[in-house]
Design a protein around this nucleic acid. Structure first.
Lengths: 338, 338
DNA sequence: GCTTCGCATGGAACCGCTTCAATAACGGTG
DNA sequence: CACCGTTATTGAAGCGGTTCCATGCGAAGC
């Protein structure tokens, strides 16, 4: 009878009919659990994400979910906002038959965790994070930072501030640090002396970013452009600028990072990274690992690009830095919509 | 040995030690699957959501997830963006031992689906949706619509437009329709004649909303305020207004619905509903149902309230509607930040 | 010192499916 | 019509726990 359920070819049509009929009459519902146990594969993978509510995380998650779905895996979701949650979920992973593998998203695991997972032999794949020996899908955040800074530099800006979030001590996000590094390199490459006062770190929230922005704008020599470490923070920067009475992009250029949905909606200039695709790719790669295949580039790097929308514009008031009458810059890309 | 794992009291300390030691030496990892099978409870529930990327959905999801987590349930996530996905996930649910129950979020199930689930005896709970005989957690969207409209009316607006999304034929969202109904009632209650041209429906996206807004603003007699059926759409309205060269709230008041995170960030006035709490409550109630308890109010209604931020303000140009000298309204609540 | 009671432990049965080996039915052929 | 090679079906043995029952052992009571 198991044969008819699993569409085995070695069953006569007559019997199939008969069995199906009985199944229907008995209201028989097979137990997935039992099937999975005896088959030895739980058909389940874990998706581990930090701060589920962040749009960039959700986009990645959605990407991963869609391919797992179509590959027939159940996706159990683990959200970690505190170290103990990480601990718990990771522990659940190491239990045999808990999940067949895991996609770890935007979570930098510590040595201890990695060792545990390795010794438990859990198929693993990382997205927006890396670890030795684990297939990962990333972007070059340093380059991303450079791209953002260069975009602003190309528009004539010189006093370019950076607003980011402090590295989380427990769940070590390091992308902000790398983006900052890229920004620094770009400035250095153009021979611009870096003013430490223009670099502000706070909590990863747009209200924190707004506060930092107000601080920046109160500086005796305020920035003409701000690079925010994420779009979420860039939205805060926008709010901060408005609160300070500045107009974007007229008085201040702002560029974010990620290209989340609302960035497009609000016309935020940003550094785009393929969020959804990163999740999808991670999931695909995990499936490969589970099947025992060898994933090709251990470290897969996705492309990055500046999307100039309407929050960045060429520096219009050279008085601030040099001379010249007011002349509206060319920037201001087409707004979204239509 | 099962006893020591399950912390049974009937085991001597010495034996416990010995067993634990052996377990450690053998690198023994218990199989969750086997445990669950023999125990007869999968310890897993399904979270079914539509359009995972919508912020309101994510907030609810996060709420549900957090309580399931602390209750020791694995949450398998099902995202449905198309009817066939719904079908698949629902079907998986009816399989025995697939999941112990499900929290259905913002998804209006059809009669057929409900019947199937009922006959399969799957413990069910709905959030932001309802069905006869199923415990649900909702808000009164009609009243929400009324609240939004009244807020604008109280500010002196009379030409109030509505921007919303068309009901999805497959996954029947009906909240927009109800919010619209509430809006209509409020207007009717004040004896305001309703102009059908001021009601625009499109896709649920902020770009669509932006387009609708531009149409509205090109009207010979454009609205002075717009009520958007969701914050996402309100953001689009904001963008549309900006594209049309209008300033918010000076030239146009905008109110949204949901109070998603970015609403607070951007100072969007909105009708707040407890998103995260709704998910959490749904999860709690599901746990109760699973435990065989009777959930108290079958239909649990969560509170709603207007949050006036900086996108709504009293009508300043009375010429447009009636009389009165210009007097800046009280509105314009403190901006976010700090 | 021997029985009685109770708690700790070892063992069997079972959860519900898959799988594989063994048996039965089948169709074709000499 | 008997025989043989296939193919279909049935049955038993796991998968890896949990649970329940029976046995063993130690402490308490007589």
């Amino acid at each position: 009878m198991s044969r008819v359920l699993n569409h085995s070819p070695h069953v006569r049509e007559a019997t199939r009919q008969r069995v199906t009929e009985v199944i229907r009459r008995l209201q028989y519902r097979p137990s997935r659990l039992a099937a999975r146990l005896s088959r030895g594969s739980p058909g389940t993978v874990m998706l581990l994400v930090p701060f589920l509510t962040r749009p960039s995380v959700v986009a990645r998650l959605a990407g991963a979910l869609s391919v797992l779905d179509e590959q027939g895996f159940d996706a159990i979701l683990g959200n970690v906002e505190a170290p103990d949650q990480l601990e718990r979920h990771l522990h659940a992973l190491t239990a045999r038959h808990g999940a067949e593998g895991a996609v770890i998203i935007s979570l930098q695991l510590g040595e201890r965790h990695l060792a545990e997972l390795r010794s438990a032999g859990v198929p693993l794949v990382m997205v927006d994070a890396q670890a030795p020996g684990v297939p990962c899908t990333v972007v070059d955040d340093i380059r991303g930072g450079t791209l953002a800074a260069e975009h602003l530099l190309d528009l004539g800006h010189r006093r370019i501030a950076f607003v980011g979030d402090e590295p989380n001590p427990d769940l070590g996000f390091r992308s902000t640090r790398r983006r900052l590094l890229g920004y620094r390199r770009a400035l250095a490459a153009r021979g611009i002396c870096q003013n430490p006062a223009l670099i502000r770190l706070g909590a990863h929230s747009s209200t924190a970013a707004a506060a930092l922005t107000r601080q920046l704008l109160r500086l005796p020599d305020p920035p003409t452009a701000i690079f925010a470490a994420s779009d979420t923070q860039a939205l805060g920067v926008l709010a901060g600028a408005e609160q300070a009475g500045l107009r974007v992009p007229d008085d201040l250029s702002v560029i974010g990072y990620d290209d989340i949905e609302s960035a497009a909606q609000l016309g935020l200039s940003t550094v785009r990274q393929p969020l959804r695709a990163s999740g999808a790719s991670g999931a695909h790669r995990l499936c490969a690992v589970i099947r025992g295949e060898r994933v090709r580039p251990m470290r897969q790097e996705l492309p990055l690009g500046v999307v100039a929308r309407s929050t960045t514009r060429a520096l219009t008031d050279p008085v601030r830095s040099l001379t010249d009458p007011v002349r509206a810059g060319p920037a201001r890309t087409a707004p979204p919509g239509d």
